[in-house]
Design a protein around this nucleic acid. Structure first.
Length: 464
RNA sequence: GCCCUCAUCGUCUAUCGGUUAGGACAGGGGAUUCUCAAUCCUCAAAGCGGGGUUCAACUCCCCGUGGGGGCACCA
């Protein structure tokens, strides 16, 4: 068999969302699995609805997700190829040429100034309830699609359709097929929402005398809450949003792979190379899947946990940086580099996502942190916290500060001498040092803050 | 309304005629602990309904029902 060529063909008319991302992902996986070519084609024939901003979002999101294209618009190391240009707005001459071919075949006619494609078969009129008008249906020789995911799908009736608008611009069905022919696309992997377009496309391929590509219609992603498929307007639909919130792209990609596909055993978290090795079209599910951010978050945490220290610190810094001019990011980025690193590494094992970082680490970077009232009431309710604080100050003033365990030892000795436990000191110390009752290990927090700051905060703390 | 399509725990899924229907997320309980997480153990949780086919059906077929998609001179 000749080389597999697949394509992702977005139209830059809106932000890049989860559903599109998975469609690209499956195309990309299939190309990588088969050693084929992944083409990116921009379907921007509808000038009125396209925007350069959306185009940049598409490039940006693909790049972020690590889904590189072999042919297409030149962006960074991606793109190029012999079948260009890869933006439909620059391919008008090609569509004119193909239109002439089709006209010569006698399969077109003009009506109301537009060019229509004529279906072959027996025609009859029927009143269409949805459009509230009479339309002409054509019973064609059943257009059969041998779908790689769904098996045999056939449609017995269809309608003639416009291929060139009265303003001279070609329509989606036409350019989509022409480009697939011209770009030698072998496999069309797209959302199930295109399934009912497919018979039209098949007819067009045949009218051109071109080989019909293999089709694979993947199920749709349903919104988290409420009915229907996920759309750009839904909460949590945009890829950009996950990027901004600091999700790791490798976690999102892994999660998306599992929405409609699985390796056949019980593995879930797996390296992309392994997914590429195992991915194949017949393994894709046929039923729609509901997006579950909880599971994504879990996946994200798992990836976060295993990031090497240097990488984690770099990504944490990048996350603060992209937050822009927020108070959190400013003070964190202004901090000493070594200190920043220590804070981040201390917190790494506790996080579900980078998103939590600013609030979780704020007290490391400022003396002006807020005190959580509930946490304070809880910590101050038991025993004699003020006395504990005083004792702690005395002990820590001279304690061995060389490691977490050294500090822990010192506090344990103190506690034992008073007949108390480590916890009796931990709670109030945490409150005084961080203003809250959640955070990394208290001894690590002390070590990273440094003796001076710890003593100052303990001394300054008033239980009011 | 018409056409297409799908159907296992709340969610994502395994099972390709014979299983105590398995795993993961979320939820309950417990262990651990320095708070919160994480981790480990554990509990609860599913074959949409009705007909067939078969010695045997979650699995194959049909009909319902329910979900999803489509029905433009949008893509």
């Amino acid at each position: 068999m000749s080389q597999v060529r697949v394509r992702f063909a977005p139209s830059p008319t809106g932000f890049f969302h989860i559903g599109s991302a998975r469609t690209v992902l499956f195309n990309w996986l299939y190309a990588r699995h088969t050693g084929g070519v992944f083409v990116l084609r921009i379907e921007d024939t509808d000038a009125a609805r396209n925007s350069e901003e959306f185009l940049r979002v598409i490039y940006g999101s693909l790049t972020w997700l690590g889904l590189n294209w072999d042919e297409g618009p030149q962006v960074g190391a991606c793109g190029g190829g012999d079948c260009g240009p890869y933006r439909q707005s620059e391919r008008a001459h090609i569509y004119r040429e193909y239109l002439e071919k089709l006209k010569a075949s006698g399969r077109t006619y003009e009506k109301d100034g537009a060019v229509w494609f004529r279906l072959l078969g027996e025609r009859h009129e029927v009143f269409d309830e949805h459009r509230k008008k009479t339309v002409v249906k054509v019973k064609n020789a059943p257009a059969v699609i041998d779908d790689r995911i769904r098996g045999r799908v056939e449609r017995t009736e269809d309608e003639d359709f416009v291929i060139v608008r009265s303003d001279g611009n070609p329509v989606f069905h036409f350019v989509n097929v022409v480009d697939d022919i011209a770009m030698k696309i072998t496999h069309v992997i797209r959302g199930e929402d295109h399934l009912s377009n497919t018979s039209k496309h098949v007819e067009l391929f045949q009218a051109f005398g071109a080989p019909v590509p293999a089709y694979a219609h993947i199920p749709l992603i349903l919104k988290q809450n409420g009915p229907g498929k996920m759309s750009k307007r839904d909460q949590g639909a945009l890829i950009e949003e996950y990027q901004k919130r600091g999700f790791l792209p490798e976690a999102l990609v892994n999660f998306l792979c599992l929405l409609g596909w699985n390796p056949g055993d019980n593995r879930e978290k797996m390296p992309i190379a392994e997914i590429i090795r195992l991915f194949d079209l017949p393994g894709v599910n046929q039923s729609n899947a509901r997006f579950d951010e909880k599971k994504l978050t879990h996946m994200n945490m798992a990836y976060l946990l295993e990031l090497p220290a240097d990488v984690f610190v770099r990504r944490a810094r990048a996350h603060f940086a992209q937050l822009g001019e927020t108070p959190f990011s400013k003070i964190a980025l202004a901090a000493d580099e070594k200190f920043f690193r220590e804070v981040m590494l201390l917190c790494q094992p506790k996080l579900k996502g980078l998103e939590e970082l600013p609030a979780y680490t704020a007290y490391f970077f400022t003396e002006n942190f807020s005190v959580d009232v509930k946490a304070r009431d809880k910590a101050m309710a038991k025993g004699d916290p003020v006395a504990r604080l005083r004792e702690l100050t005395g002990t820590l003033a001279t304690a061995d500060w060389s490691s977490d365990t050294a500090i822990e030892e010192a506090i344990k000795v103190l506690a034992a001498a008073r007949g108390l436990g480590f916890g009796d000191y931990q709670a109030v110390a945490r409150l005084a040092l961080s203003g809250t009752n959640v955070g990394p290990t208290i001894t690590g927090m002390m070590r990273v803050l440094g003796r001076e700051r710890v003593l100052a905060r303990l001394g300054r703390f008033s239980p009011g």
